[in-house]
């Protein structure tokens, strides 16, 4: 494998909530066209890390650099305009907008902004690709759970992100939906997108990720290919306890 350029550099990232340290001195890189997984037990700081990168939470210490831009203390809308797109742990679609408008929302304010007829065509093409084409005129309240997830993903993709953050995007899907979901993300991977995903579903981690960072109690305890980290003793201990 040829080494590729680092696109996101996270250095000594720390987040404190009062006395609680949710993310502790975390350092990792994400390279271009790479799918990187962040895994770890509940409460280990995975989602907090995503929220720090996307700007939903303010950083206490350390730095986040995307290409040449320092994102560390920027508000979320500026981070988004440098090309960071995200989905949410609990799916968040815009309930009073149409399906197409939900996707346009992703592109209209992004770094390569589109508007008007151009945005509409772009959004429809994207819906088509995510197999939502036949549902573009459907009432938004009648979308199934996986379709809502797809729509949220379409909104994130509409911004043509430099890096895409998927926060437990597969959570809550039933087994057959899960297969579709994993297939979808692996397509994104083949397109060469750069993705960070936080997941609990180990099958997805194994089949999708080039590399993983394992977190426990806010710290990085392992890093490597999925096979490497999942056989690491400390990782097993973190998941299963000391016995």
């Amino acid at each position: 494998m040829t080494p590729r350029d680092t696109i996101l550099q996270v250095t000594n990232l720390t987040k404190r909530f009062g006395g609680l340290v949710a993310v502790n001195d975390l350092t990792f890189q994400v390279r271009e066209h790479e799918v990187m997984g962040i895994i770890g037990p509940n409460g280990s700081g995975k989602s907090t890390t995503m929220n720090l990168i996307s700007g939903a939470l303010k950083v206490t210490g350390g730095s986040i650099i995307l290409e040449d831009h320092d994102l560390t203390s920027l508000p979320p809308h500026k981070i988004a305009r440098f090309g960071v797109a995200r989905t949410f742990q609990l799916v968040r679609i815009l309930p009073h907008l149409s399906v197409v408008e939900n996707v346009i929302a992703g592109t209209a304010f992004a770094h390569k902004a589109r508007w008007g007829a151009e945005a509409e065509q772009f959004a429809e093409a994207l819906l088509e690709r995510l197999e939502l084409g036949d549902k573009k005129n459907q009432d938004i309240g009648s979308l199934t759970y996986i379709d809502q997830k797809r729509l949220e993903l379409a909104r994130a993709l509409a911004s043509e992100p430099e890096i895409l953050l998927l926060d437990e995007w597969l959570a809550g899907l039933n087994p057959s939906e899960l297969r579709i979901g994993i297939e979808l993300i692996s397509q994104l991977r083949e397109e060469g997108r750069t993705i960070i995903l936080v997941e609990h579903v180990m099958d997805a981690i194994r089949s999708l990720c080039d590399r993983c960072v394992v977190m426990n109690s806010g710290k990085k305890i392992a890093e490597g290919t999925p096979a490497e980290v999942l056989s690491d003793k400390e990782v097993i201990r973190a998941y299963l306890g000391d016995e």
Binding site: A56, H77, A108, S159
Partner: peptide
């Protein structure tokens, strides 16, 4: 786009921020 931004804010302000709107 300003009007569209306002509609998105009315739907979900957090999403609005993360799609790049200065809410």
């Amino acid at each position: 786009r300003l009007g569209f931004a306002l509609r998105i804010i009315g739907n979900d302000e957090q999403v609005a921020r993360h799609v790049g709107i200065n809410t």
